[in-house]
């Protein structure tokens, strides 16, 4: 028996597909499928489930969240509650009992929690100068309640969690990557919502004060404080302050809302 040494010319045990091509196909396919499921489930929740959540359930949900925020009845809170109550009088179709909470936090933020709770951060209050601009912010949050965004957001957050946890498991970087991508889709949704409630807030401001002075003040101030690049707000949950100012000014011009005298903010110590 003889032995014939021969070299194999072609490697049959490896594929010739370019790895980058495969990566593009896989990422595209999986992300596409995920986004489809996410959007479909998200909309199903928004249109079918959320409108059917009774107020009582919402209230108990709110108490669940409110555990994190101190409820303390200071003169400051009562003053803010007064501004909110004036706005609510002009807000139709509301059955929730709206309440203001002040959170000792230097961040500039405000939140609408289920059950009619509005949380204002101290950092935001420190930056507000007139009652009118605060009313605009409160009107914005009331808009979230009117559109039930606080519940819809919860619903989609839940879908996101379930999708990433059950389908993807704990696959180190991959889950992180897919989650990030989904969060970016979510942020595009929420920027649209924010614009919607800015509009709501503006109309409420007009109804309550009969003029819209101060509607854009707060956003203008924020914009001056942190001039950001054009892309920094692209993936954020809120539109950039500049865009919000432009949008509101357009609305004011088209609705021909009058601009009156601003009431200075008189926060009790």
């Amino acid at each position: 028996m003889k032995y014939t040494p021969k070299l194999l010319t072609k490697n049959v045990n490896t594929s010739t597909t370019h790895p980058l091509r495969e990566f593009a196909i896989l990422t595209g396919g999986i992300l596409g499928a995920l986004i489809l499921v996410y959007v479909l489930l998200g909309f199903a929740l928004e249109w079918v489930v959320v409108p059917r959540i009774p107020q009582s359930v919402e209230r108990s949900l709110g108490e669940l969240f409110l555990g994190n925020y101190a409820v303390e009845d200071s003169p400051e809170r009562q003053y803010l509650q007064g501004i909110l109550d004036r706005l609510v009088e002009h807000e139709p179709s509301q059955t929730l009992d709206y309440q203001i909470h002040v959170e000792e936090n230097p961040m500039v933020n405000a939140m609408a929690l289920p059950g009619g709770h509005i949380v204002l951060y101290q950092g935001l209050l420190d930056r507000v100068e007139s009652e009118n601009e605060l009313a605009m912010i409160l009107g914005h949050e009331l808009g979230h309640f009117a559109e039930r965004h606080h519940l819809k957001g919860l619903g989609r957050g839940l879908v996101l969690l379930v999708l990433s946890a059950t389908l993807l498991g704990d696959q180190s970087g991959i889950t992180q990557f897919l989650q990030d991508s989904l969060a970016r889709v979510e942020s595009r949704f929420s920027q649209r919502q924010e614009q919607q409630v800015d509009e709501f807030g503006l109309h409420l401001l007009q109804k309550t004060y009969h003029h819209v002075a101060g509607a854009t003040d707060f956003f203008e101030r924020i914009q001056k404080e942190e001039p950001e690049g054009p892309l920094s707000y692209f993936f954020a949950s809120h539109p950039s302050p500049a865009n919000r100012v432009d949008f509101l000014n357009e609305l004011i011009a088209s609705a021909q809302y009058p601009i009156g005298e601003k009431t200075p903010l008189d926060l009790p110590e």
Binding site: N13, P19, E22, L26, T27, G29, I30, L168, G173, I174
Partner: peptide, 20 residues
């Protein structure tokens, strides 16, 4: 890179070229 590629392939199914 290939680890991530293999992870994605594991979701979709098929030949795992990354490991070949």
């Amino acid at each position: 890179f290939k680890r991530i590629l293999a992870g994605l392939r594991n979701i979709m199914g098929g030949r795992m070229t990354a490991y070949e």
